[in-house]
Structures are given as structure tokens and as C-alpha cells.
Design a protein around this nucleic acid. Structure first.
Lengths: 189, 189
DNA sequence: GCATCCTAGTCAAGAAAATGACTAATCACA
DNA sequence: TGTGATTAGTCATTTTCTTGACTAGGATGC
């Protein structure tokens, strides 16, 4: 009963097909929620049967037909209700961190590689989110956009994502350096 | 097939009962993995049946008896194998962020309150993790500890947790301020 | 001219995780 | 003297997630 609200929140940006929604969950929404496309199709069907979203068929010539969904008034009411209720505490789940926690018992070389790779991914995502933010705010500067923009929700969560990715990148780089130095010390004995 | 490695990594710190493990998953391990105590008991039973951990009964007078677990050589080998394999991408899941994404459609007052509350929690966790780090490194300074400490894995993941919480707190404070200012603008019209 | 990618989904099986209830003794507090 | 917290778990059910396979046509690249 939680994915549904992430879907509703994502659909506020406009009409989406399940496929497009899955894309959104790979980029902006990924800053706070992850879901596979099959889950999204299933959730959309459930939301539709409950009347929280409506879909309309769009026939396409060069592409398979699709169904575009948007949030209904009942969906908005449900979001409103959700917004007022208590939130579950957030959680992270990260296998790379599990490995680092076990760093003293596993192969350092491989770990360093993975940290560098992850740092590169985080760096790429940092740049991507930077671009996305520029796109979302358009011509105006950030402070002005945040004061008077019409749809700032996605912007705010992207800000969080950007900060997270930067921070994560820095940590990865630093930890890789720490592990490299320790390898040098061990090799030098 | 993922919780098992988090459990193995956590058990590297020494012998733990299921109950103690659950505590660890609420503090240090929470920086990268979340699990309910029931899951941990179940996972420990599975790991034991596969020979990756061994448990020994400890009879207590004033407390219920408990079973302390430690990682076996087979468990270490499994961790080693896990360390060399590719990691799944990490994911965050945060209902508060879902709400912020939908900020334009839900009640601002409640959201601001929740952001402030979350900021306070993050602040408390920041302080807690700071203390934990001091405790982990003992008398030596950080650079020295990271160069020559014996068990740095938990320290490194706590560093990540600390950074995350600080960052999260700052974001919460800032977003609450942004939403407050927007409320002022609306009220002023 | 063939291979692969992209759009746009659907289906089913099985693993993993979340939830809620329950036991039972001890200790701290008021 | 009783209320609640702490230690130390167990059991069962439901929900959610993951994985892999499958359809099908058009676009793109080599």
C-alpha cells in the first residue's frame, strides 16, 4: 500500500502510459522510489479499478497502442489523505555498502574497482540531475522558481537526489582511496 | 538472497544473538540495510542450516536463554564470493519524498511539520553516529585509524550514514523553508 | 539484409519481505 | 502493587518483489 502513492505522485506531472511511467521511475522518481515495470502495470490496473486513476486508449500508427493514465479527483483525495498521515521511516538498501561493511574480510582490489565504478555512475547521475533541474525551472533562477513556480514537487525531490548522488560519489572516491592506501601498507610489509 | 550477506557482514563484529542482531540492524547496519527482527531470526536459521553460521546456546539465569551466532569459514567464503560479484543498484524508499513530490497537490502545513520532524530525527541520528564513530576509532585520530585500524568496515559505513543524515537534515530544513515562504506568498494575496 | 533496439505491454512462479499476534520472565519506577 | 519496558524469541498469513519468458511491429545501425 505504498507504491500506489508513488505512482499517484508521479502521475501528477501529466498523462503517462505504463511504459512512460516505468521510464520516470528509472530517472526522477528513482530518487525516492524504485519499482519494476511489471509492478507499475499491476499497480495502475489496481488504481484504475479503484477509480483513483483513469486510462484512455491512444491508437498509434507506427507504434503499439498505449493507454494513458491520469489521476482522478478520488486519486487526489487519496494523495491528500496520504500526505496528512504519518510516514514510515525511510530506508536504503545497498549491496555495495554491505560489502564495505565486510571490507576487512573480502578482497580489497575488487571492492576498490566497484567503488570507482559506482563513483562514476553517481557522477553521471549528478550531471544528469543538474540538467533535469535546469530544464524543470526553465529560464528563471532557482530562488525565483522555488518562490513562484507552479509545480515544484519534482524539482524538490530532484534537489535531494542531486545532493545524494554528489555525497555518494564523494564517499565512494574517499573510501576507494582509504582502501588503496591500506593495500599499499599491507604490500609494503 | 541479499539479506543473508547483510547478516553475515554484521556478524563479523563478533558473536550476536538474533535479538542483538536486530538491535544492530536498527543502528549501524540501518545505514545500508533494513530488516525486521522476524526476518533476522528466519535468516539466521537458514544460514545455520546451510552451515554459513553456527550458533551456540547460552544459558542465562536472570534472562531468557539465547543463542549466539558467528560466521563459519564457509560463511566467510560466501561473503568473499559475494564481494567479488556484481552489486545490484542501490535503492532508497522514502514516503516523505513521495509527499514532497506531490507537494503541489497536498496540504503544505502538514508537510512542513513532517519535514521539521524528520530534520530533528536526522539531527539526532547525526549526533548518535558521531558518537559511534568516536567509539569505534577509540583514542587515535581518524586518518590514523583508517590507515591502520583492524576493523574499519563498520566505521566506513557509519561515515556514509553520517554524511547521509547531515545531508538529509539540511534538505529537510531547506524544503520546509521553501514551503513556508510559498505559504506566506499565497496568504499575502 | 540481418540483427538488435525501442515501444508497449502481459503472464506466471517463486522468493523475499512485511505484518500482527503471541509467550514468558525480569527489572525499573512510582 | 501494578504498569510498562527489556530481553529473547516464535508462528502464521498476506503482500510485495523479483525473475524470466513471451508477443509484435517499427526503427536504427552496420
Amino acid at each position: 500500500m505504498a507504491l500506489r502513492h508513488a505512482v499517484l505522485a508521479a502521475l501528477l506531472d501529466g498523462e503517462y502510459s505504463g511504459y512512460q511511467l516505468a521510464k520516470a521511475f528509472d530517472v526522477g522518481v528513482a530518487n525516492f522510489w524504485h519499482a519494476a515495470s511489471q509492478q507499475l502495470y499491476a499497480e495502475l490496473a489496481k488504481l484504475e479499478s479503484e477509480g483513483l486513476v483513469t486510462g484512455r486508449q491512444v491508437v498509434q500508427k507506427t507504434r503499439p497502442d498505449k493507454r494513458l493514465f491520469r489521476v482522478t479527483d478520488a486519486g487526489l483525495a487519496e494523495l491528500e489523505r496520504f500526505g496528512a498521515a504519518a510516514s514510515k521511516p525511510s530506508f536504503i538498501r545497498d549491496e555495495l555498502l554491505v560489502k564495505v561493511h565486510a571490507a576487512d574480510s573480502i578482497d580489497g582490489g575488487s571492492l576498490i574497482e566497484q567503488l570507482q565504478e559506482r563513483a562514476a555512475v553517481a557522477e553521471a547521475k549528478t550531471e544528469f540531475l543538474g540538467g533535469l533541474l535546469r530544464q524543470l525551472r526553465g529560464e528563471v533562477d532557482e530562488a525565483e522558481f522555488l518562490r513562484r513556480g507552479e509545480r515544484i514537487g519534482p524539482y524538490l525531490t530532484c534537489l535531494r537526489g542531486l545532493s545524494f548522488e554528489r555525497d555518494h560519489r564523494d564517499w565512494c572516491v574517499r573510501i576507494a582511496a582509504v582502501l588503496r592506501e591500506r593495500q599499499g601498507i599491507h604490500a609494503g610489509r
